[in-house]
Design a protein around this nucleic acid. Sequence first.
DNA 1: CCACTAAACGGACTGCAGTCCGTTTATATT
DNA 2: AATATAAACGGACTGCAGTCCGTTTAGTGG
Lengths: 198, 198
Amino acid sequence: MSDIHQLPLLSDVAPERSDAARNRVAILRATEELIAESGIHAVTMDAVAARAGVGKGTLFRRFGSREGLMAAMLNFSEAEWQAEVISGPPPLGPGADPMSRLLAFGRSRAERTLRHSDLISAAGAAANRSYAAYSFTAMHVRYLLGELGVSGDIPVLATALLAPLEAPILAHQVDADGLSLQRIQDGWAEVAHRIVQR
Amino acid sequence: MSDIHQLPLLSDVAPERSDAARNRVAILRATEELIAESGIHAVTMDAVAARAGVGKGTLFRRFGSREGLMAAMLNFSEAEWQAEVISGPPPLGPGADPMSRLLAFGRSRAERTLRHSDLISAAGAAANRSYAAYSFTAMHVRYLLGELGVSGDIPVLATALLAPLEAPILAHQVDADGLSLQRIQDGWAEVAHRIVQR
DNA sequence: CCACTAAACGGACTGCAGTCCGTTTATATT
DNA sequence: AATATAAACGGACTGCAGTCCGTTTAGTGG
C-alpha cells in the first residue's frame, strides 16, 4: 500500500521518447508540405518517409497506415473546430438557445467537411474509427436534441441529422447534383426543424 | 434518307464479341465463387483471372478496376430489387399509397444495404458513380415526396432521407453502436414521418 | 475458302501499401 | 560513467492493383 503512489497514472500513459517525438513532428510536417505542394495523391508513404528523413517502418509504427496518417492530419483542424463548439462564441458555442446552436452546428459542419473532403476521403474508414470526430458530433447533437425536449429515439434521430453531413454525401451533392453550399445548408436547417418538432 | 434504318440504334451499342461475352461470364462466375468460398478479401484480381482462365488485362479492360468488378457484382441483386420497386407487389411496388410505399422503401432498403455491405464497401466510389443505384433511389424518393405534396426543397429532403440508409452509416450503427436492424428501421420511419409532414 | 482488321487477349512490368527483423539508441539503474 | 533493456529505427521484402504492348482471334467482305 505504501507503493500506491507508484501505480501508473493516466497521465503517464505515453512517455514518448525524444527521438520518437522529433520524428512524429517531422512526419506530420513533411505530409503537410507534400499536400500543399502537389495534392493528396502525391502523399505516398515512401515520399513522406524520404522527405521526413525517417524509414518507412517508422511511419507505419506510428500511424498504422496511410489512412491513419491522414486521420492524424485531420485531427489538428478537427480539434480546433471542437474547441469552438465546446467553448467558442455563440451560436456555435455555448450561450445561445439549443435550436440556434443546432442550426449553427449544421451550417458550420457542412462547410468544414466540404473544405476537408479530400483529406477525409483519403482517411477513409480511419476517419470514423479512431479520432473522435464521429463520436464527438454524435454526442453533441444528442445533447442538443435532449435540451430541445425532442421525443423519440434520440440516438437514431441524431444519426439522421448527421448522415447528410458526411463527406461523400456532401461531395456528391456539390459535384454530381451541382448544388451550392448555401442550398445544402438551408436544406439541412429545414430538415433539422422538421426532425426537432415534438 | 433511305439509309435512315441503318443509322446506329441504341440497341446496337454493344455488339459484344463472342469470346468477350464468354470471358465476361467466366469472370463474374469466378468472382462469385471466390466470394462464396473465402470472402471478399480473397478476391484479388490475380485470383479472379486465374480462376476464370483469362489474363489480368482482360479483367481490367472489362471492369476498369477491382471496384468496378465489385460494382458489377452488385448490379445483379440491385436490378432485382429495383424491379420489385418498379413493378413488384405493394407496398414496396406500385399500388399502395405514397406514404406506405415510402415506409416500405426505407425498411427494405436498410435491410438490403446491410446484407450487402461487404460488397458495397468493396465497390467503394464505383458503387455511387456508375451503376444507377444512387440515382434510382434518389429519383424514387423524390417522386414519392412529390406525390405526398411535401413542401420545400425536395431534392435536398430526399438526400436527407437517403443518407442514413448508406452502407457505412448503417454498418456503424450496427457494429459500433450495437443497434438492431429493427430499431434502425423504426427510427427511419419516424424520421420519414417528420420530414414528410407539410 | 482466304485475307483483312479491329477488337480482345494475356502476361510481364511498375508503383505503392504494408510487413519483418536485425540494428541502433534513449533512458533508467547502479 | 558503465550497463542493461525496452523501445524506436529503417530499409529490404512481399503482395496486390493497375498499365503496356506485342500477339491472337472473331467477324467480315471478296
